[in-house]
Design a protein around this nucleic acid. Structure first.
Lengths: 116, 116
DNA sequence: TTGCAGTTTCAAAGAGGTTTGAAATCATGG
DNA sequence: CCATGATTTCAAACCTCTTTGAAACTGCAA
C-alpha cells in the first residue's frame, strides 16, 4: 500500500507515523465518526443552531419556538427531531405542552461554540 | 409579540430573561451563525471528518489522500474544497504537488471534538 | 365522551448536496 | 515549447434534506 510517489518532505514525516496505515489507525472509529457527523448535521442549518441556542437560554414549548421564529409547526417539529437525533435536546410532556430542553451534551456544545 | 399561551412555569422564567425579544437578542448574530453553519456543514460528512483528522496528524498531498481513502481525485477535490470554504484547511503548492494543511481553526476544532 | 389546543406524522414537491467521468489547468522536466 | 503527472473544474445524474399543508395523535377539560 506504500508504493506511491509523494514529496520527500512528506514521505519522511509519514514514515515516523507508521505510514498510511498508521494514520488510518489513529482516525476516529466508526461509532465516533457517526456521532460527530450526526452532531455536525444537527448544527448545519441556521434554524437548528438558533433553536439550540435559544433552548440553552430557556427551555421552551413548541408553540413558543414557533412564535419566536414564525415557522410552521411541522417545520419546527422536523428540525427539533434532528436536534433530538443528534442528542442535543430532549423533551418532556408538561400538561398539554411538550417542553424541549438542551441535553448536557447540547449545553456542552453550545459552550464550546460560544468560545470558539 | 408576547400574547401567546404558554405554561406558567415557563412564562415566569421567560419574563426574567426579557421575554421572547430578550432571547432573540442573546442569539448569535448573522455572521457568527454563518460561520457555525459553514463549519458544521464541513463536518457533516464522514469523508471530510476523516480527511480533517488525517491532515491534523500529517499534512498530505492529494495523491496521498486519494491513496489512503480509495476515492477518485475529483471526489476528494470536492470534499477538500468544502473543508477549505469552512476555514478548516488550506493548501500550499510544493513542486508538482498541492499539500493540504489544517488551519489553526481546523486544529482547534479537531481538539475540541476529540475531547468531547 | 366530545371538543380542543398542542404537536407530530405523512407524502409530495422543491431545493440542495454528492458522485462520476471527461476535459481543462498548472507546474515541472526534457 | 512539449509532454507528463497532479489536481481542479464542469455538467449530468443521482441522492438526500427541507418545506408545505393536510391528516392523525395526545392529554386535558367540559
Amino acid at each position: 500500500m506504500e508504493k506511491i510517489e509523494i514529496p520527500d518532505s512528506i514521505r519522511c514525516e509519514l514514515e515516523e507515523k507508521g505510514g498510511i496505515d498508521g494514520i488510518i489507525e489513529s482516525l476516529p472509529d466508526n461509532q465516533k465518526l457517526k456521532d460527530i457527523v450526526s452532531i455536525a448535521r444537527a448544527l448545519s442549518d441556521p434554524v437548528r443552531v438558533r433553536v439550540l441556542f435559544a433552548l440553552s437560554v430557556q427551555p421552551m414549548c413548541v408553540c413558543l419556538l414557533v412564535a419566536m421564529t414564525g415557522y410552521a409547526y411541522s417545520k419546527m417539529s422536523y428540525h427539533l427531531s434532528i436536534l433530538k437525533e443528534g442528542g442535543l435536546i430532549y423533551s418532556r410532556q408538561e400538561g398539554n405542552y411538550l417542553i424541549y430542553y438542551p441535553t448536557d451534551q447540547g449545553r456542552e456544545i453550545v459552550e464550546r461554540i460560544e468560545t470558539l
